[in-house]
């Protein structure tokens, strides 16, 4: 059986396009050969660019709209990356992280724990979020949140995934909760991944993790591990991912991106 074919993809405009250039350059530097398809308003070195046109940024739901456009491309899987991701080493077999599921969403914090110190996620009380997920069909004792900076989707599940995600978002909206794309992404992860626990960051962070606490603040990640702090209950554990979502390193990535733009 042939290896699954995949590409990376993203949606970036304005200065984020330069961060994307930095991301792609980091991937090439560690030997990543797959294509990067980017919906954008300007050329990005190293990327296959698709005109994004005007779109609605609100709540980041545009990711689902552009995902549907990706169906026209002949890949088995699509690996989404926010522009502020940085490859510190080759990620190996990226698609293996799906573990046979049509989707891989990195689940982060368990919203059902008594140890949680934050009371809410995106303004929704955790208990209420768990209720919303359960009512919508999630059947696990633990209900996790996610960071939407990296996820993988099989070509043939895109329509169903987007339908499920937007139905969930709309249902929550009708009940007074205005989520970003992260809540529906967490929802479809629980619904489509078979064993959601196998996709929890703490059980496997070799591929991707988000530096949301800013261990690499204002600098490019250097490939060293760090202590990941759980967003909801504050406990920490060691992560050492190949792809770092360097949310707090945007300025460093911008200057790196500009350099790469000039050097290409």
């Amino acid at each position: 059986m042939s290896e699954p074919r995949f590409c990376y993809w993203s949606v970036t405009t304005g200065p984020y396009a330069e961060m994307m250039a930095c991301c792609i350059r980091s991937a090439r530097a560690v030997g990543v050969c797959e294509e990067f398809h980017v919906w954008t308003d300007r050329p990005i070195p190293g990327a296959i660019c698709h005109p994004c046109g005007k779109f609605e940024f609100k709540n980041y739901l545009f990711k689902f709209d552009f995902l549907k456009k990706m169906r026209d491309l002949n890949f088995e899987f699509f690996v989404f990356l926010d522009a502020d991701n940085y490859f510190v080493r080759h990620p190996g077999d990226v698609i293996a992280s799906t573990q046979g599921a049509p989707l891989h969403v990195v689940l982060e914090s368990d919203c059902t724990r008594d140890s949680n110190t934050r009371p809410d996620w995106w303004g929704c009380p955790l208990k209420r979020f768990v209720q919303l997920m359960t009512k919508a069909g999630v059947r696990s004792r633990s209900v996790f949140n996610t960071n939407a900076g990296f996820w993988i989707v099989h070509h043939e599940v895109i329509d169903r995934m987007v339908d499920l995600a937007l139905n969930f978002w709309n249902d929550c909206h009708a009940k007074g909760y205005r989520f970003t794309e992260e809540a529906p992404l967490a929802y479809v992860g629980h619904m489509l991944m078979g064993n959601p626990y196998a996709h929890v960051l703490e059980s496997d962070s070799a591929l991707w993790a988000s530096d949301w606490t800013g261990c690499f603040e204002n600098r490019i990640p250097d490939g060293r591990p760090w202590q990941f702090v759980d967003y909801l209950d504050g406990h920490s554990f060691r992560v050492d991912p190949a792809i770092v979502h360097c949310m707090r390193s945007k300025s460093a990535m911008l200057s790196h991106g500009r350099r790469s733009s000039f050097n290409q």
């Binding site: 573990q99 599921a101 049509p102 059947r139 078979g194 064993n195």
Partner: peptide
């Protein structure tokens, strides 16, 4: 059938 039926069995 659940959305994840075959992967549920395999997992």
């Amino acid at each position: 059938y659940p959305e994840d039926f075959p992967v549920f069995y395999e997992a």
